[in-house]
Design a protein around this nucleic acid. Sequence first.
DNA 1: AATCTAATTCGATAATTGTCGAATTAGATA
DNA 2: TATCTAATTCGACAATTATCGAATTAGATT
Lengths: 186, 186
Amino acid sequence: MSEELVDFYKALADSNRLKIVGLLANRAYSVEELAALLELKPSTVSHHLAKLAQVGLVSAKTESYYNVYRLEEKALEEKTRRLLSREDFQSVAAGVDVDAYDRKVVADYRRRDGSLKTIPAQRKKLEAVLRHVVEAFEPGKRYSEKQVNKILSGFHEDTASLRRELVGYGLMKREGGGGDYWRVES
Amino acid sequence: MSEELVDFYKALADSNRLKIVGLLANRAYSVEELAALLELKPSTVSHHLAKLAQVGLVSAKTESYYNVYRLEEKALEEKTRRLLSREDFQSVAAGVDVDAYDRKVVADYRRRDGSLKTIPAQRKKLEAVLRHVVEAFEPGKRYSEKQVNKILSGFHEDTASLRRELVGYGLMKREGGGGDYWRVES
DNA sequence: AATCTAATTCGATAATTGTCGAATTAGATA
DNA sequence: TATCTAATTCGACAATTATCGAATTAGATT
């Protein structure tokens, strides 16, 4: 899954490993040859090749004394092509909790009894708090202005501001002038 | 040049940076929001974004208080597509000295006076030494067997073996049976 | 102008990882 | 079977880098 993608990039995120891939793009080489070409010790080259093999970029074939490595071109092409789709990147972020920011902001403004210390002045934080407040309303149900104020008073004494912002940010709507309020479906 | 490619992979070779790219693939985020989502400190996120910006993967736009980052999709697509060509990989290896292996092997077998300690028994090393020996012959010029032996005796007393291997590996040729020898153009 | 906020920079630290040498293994040659 | 060679593995060390906290900067709001 996502680990696979990170490992793929990590495998190529080293100058000597990139050189190995570049050399193998021309022809196959043994560990000893690569070590001489890159001026590295065989053990180091072996280590690099292991990382490349782990993500399927190279494969080894024993040939008499030598272990000849070659580039797995299909793996390289397939993996590289998949990255164009952007879907893989999004899947990497799939595990991220997209509500974490809201929760953090709300936690900063909420008292233990659920009321708000203040109404945030900054737009992004206000939005987060409003998304939290609006959950006190039942979706689809209609509320009179008195009922709305009753519920909002549990959050802050300035119910008029809360009401205005909820409507302003499109989280609640009111019918015509002076009619009932209802929560907008997200 | 090649540094650019390594840096590109390094930029993506971190799990948190991949998540950032994945999130930005959906919409733009501020540093603060990303920090909350990834449960990292803003300074750390700033560091990651700097690395991504360095390779042109993201760009920032100041918006009121916030610094909103967005994904540079064209850069991502272009760079990713270039990797399909395999040409970039070969260019990475362009700086590598492809004769280094030969020189290393020859150095192991050569005495200070230019003669060979032994004739290598292993194929790959024999090839390297023969490529060195054949350079004592002038391209295009024809040599009698006596002349050939004279030159080869500077390398090793077993001139017959050297002669046979040079022909066997296609580095020298002889005309018909018992005719002259000449060095094959590489 | 004064104040506030998010972002960045810097220094320090912890974790990761590239490199090597020594010891071991696997496989072919004699 | 015994020996030889290339490759791998392992432990140690050095270099890189991800992370954080503190201090500073850049901009906007009052």
